[in-house]
Amino acid sequence: MNAVIEAEHLRKAFGELVAVDDISFAVKAGECFGILGPNGAGKTSTIRMIYGFSPPTAGQLTVFGLDITRNAREVKARIGVCQQENNLDPDLSVLQNLVVFARYFNIPASEAAGRARELMRFMALDHRENSRAVDLSGGLVRRLVMARALLNRPELLILDEPTTGLDPQSRHQVWERLEELRAGGLSILLTTHYMEEASRLCDRLLIMDQGRILVEGKPEELVRRHVGRHVLEVADPAEDLTAFLRERDVRYESFGHRVIVYVEDGSDLYREISDRFCQKSCTMRMATLEDVFLRLTGRELRE
């Protein structure tokens, strides 16, 4: 399969601050690729370079095999972008927002109206056709931004934190639409810090922090490779638990009042721990991408 995006030794610096520090990755046609990372990791800086918004400081970046710095207009005509901030035209109606945006792509008016209606149906916006954008709720705003990004029938859809700040209903609706689009063959690149979103949508993903890529791969593979299958969480453990874990040679992290154990098959170990060391609560659950993320990027607060 062809690569839609190829980044090689990509760098972005704002004066002294290095936002993206020598990263290389490729996104294949038809896949949904995720860029994960804590705030300030360089996710947005990376995708801004891909949609031609900000020029790379160094490195190679091609989209559809075209050098983005030299072919920005052609590339931008073939991608759809949902930026993080709401940048709809607040005074215009839902339909007008779409029709005005279609003009930026030189889509003829009659064609634009047809596509707008089709996309309003697809994003369940048709009942709000004449509402002004300023009166829309957060979920409707995001759906309209997505509809707008699809007007030019893009081959690649880029979404910067598509569900941040949405209620669960709206979030699931966005996910369902993205799954439908992916099933239809659209390549998707998204940034997120919701692990549930990444595991559900992404075929492959990378986790970055401080401008660098930490790991890359399929979500389930990353979980197996970096965490294992099971996670045991022990709250307020008995003092000799860590000694016991060291003796058993299992991977664990201790946060004082909470110990987290990563293990391939935790059933026996869980029974033993809950019998001997559990004073308050002990749980065993399946390992998730969130465990990978927190192990790799640490638990301390950002910003």
């Binding site: 918004f53 207009r73 052609e74 005509a77 930026q83 709401n86 940048n87 035209d89 930026y104 792509f105």
Partner: peptide
Amino acid sequence: YQKTFDAMMATPLT
């Protein structure tokens, strides 16, 4: 405030 130019810059407009 409206980020209108940001939206336009993600389209073929320069």
